[in-house]
Amino acid sequence: MTRSDAELLAAHVAGDSDAFGELFARHRDRLWAVALRTMGNPEEAADGLQDGLIAAFRRADSFRGEAQVTTWLHRVVVNACLDRLRANKVRAAGALPDDLDEAGDRGTLTTSEAGPGPEEAAEAHDVRRAVLRALDTLPVEQRAALILVDMQGYPVAEAAAILGCAVGTVKSRCARGRARLAPLLGVLREPDEASDTPGNPPGTGDVSSGDRPRGPPAVSP
């Protein structure tokens, strides 16, 4: 019988040595995707994810059930990544990796199901890199809100629970972040282009590829 997230976390607190690993494996891809987009490169993302998992492993008995276990896990990982960004002043100045994209239809910065041709794929790749570099210029709180809402597709209420702030705060951070991104990304827009995809910052269009990330490195608490 498959145990729920809450049952796995409770079992871990009770001393089950396998429960936390099973819980992490269940949510590994999404936790990695959030860490990777937040940190901007795989090395820093692996460190941020590791920090978050160690914190969750050690503080599991502090979980009181006010939110879903997956929301709590995301909150711990995101906070660990933001702490690392603040401490190290990471702005990902180097080349961005190709595996920053997560498949699917989540969020507003995604592609359609149809596969692009070579020219379209190359253009989308350049645009995607520009968007991710522009994200690096934002304050970490605005960046985290935009990543969760616009790139990962979380509802605003769930993003607020993950970030530990009010819904209105997330909306405000997203609005200010989009406003800051608009002039940085406007150069990507053709002068005669009528409109962008609804909900996207001007000039972003559809920027994420349909390829799944290669996934996180092995991480253990």
Rank of each mutant, 00 (worst) to 15 (best):
R30N: 14
A80V: 05
A46S: 14
V78R: 15
D61E: 13
A35R: 13
V13A: 13
F63T: 08
L23M: 08
H27F: 02
E66Y: 02
G21K: 02
A67C: 10
G21A: 03
A11C: 08
R37D: 01
A33R: 05
A11S: 12
G48A: 05
E43A: 13
L73E: 02
R30I: 15
R26I: 12
D18S: 13
F63L: 05
R26W: 04
V34S: 07
V77G: 08
D51F: 12
A56R: 00
A6I: 15
F20Q: 03
R64T: 14
L49N: 07
A10T: 11
T70D: 10
A11E: 06
G21Y: 07
T71I: 13
H27K: 10
G40I: 04
F24P: 06
L8S: 08
N79D: 15
V69N: 05
A67M: 09
R58C: 14
C81H: 07
T38N: 01
A19Q: 03
G65K: 00
L31N: 12
R37V: 11
R64W: 07
L36V: 08
D51W: 05
T38A: 00
V34F: 06
D47A: 08
A14L: 05
Q68A: 14
A25H: 06
H74E: 09
G48F: 03
H74T: 04
G52D: 01
A60N: 01
T38L: 10
R58T: 15
E66N: 04
A11F: 08
L36K: 02
C81P: 09
R26A: 09
G65C: 07
V13L: 02
R59N: 11
V69A: 01
A80P: 07
G48K: 08
V77M: 09
G40S: 06
G15A: 03
V13W: 00
A80Y: 02
V78K: 11
A46D: 11
A55Y: 05
V78E: 14
H74G: 06
I54N: 01
G40F: 10
F57L: 06
L82A: 11
L23T: 05
A46I: 12
D51N: 11
A6Y: 13
V69H: 06
R59F: 12
A33F: 09
G65M: 03
D51T: 13
A19W: 05
D16W: 08
E66A: 14
S17C: 10
Q68N: 08
G21N: 04
L73N: 05
A46P: 09
D5P: 01
L82K: 06
L9Y: 07
L49E: 12
G65W: 01
Q68W: 09
G15D: 02
L53W: 01
Q50C: 00
R30V: 15
Q50P: 00
V76T: 12
D16T: 02
H74W: 02
L49V: 03
A11W: 07
A25C: 05
G21T: 00
W32D: 14
V77S: 07
L36M: 04
D51V: 10
L53M: 11
D16N: 11
R28P: 09
G15H: 01
A80G: 07
A46M: 10
A33K: 00
R75K: 06
R26V: 10
W32A: 07
F57E: 14
Q50G: 03
G15E: 01
S62G: 14
A6L: 12
L9D: 02
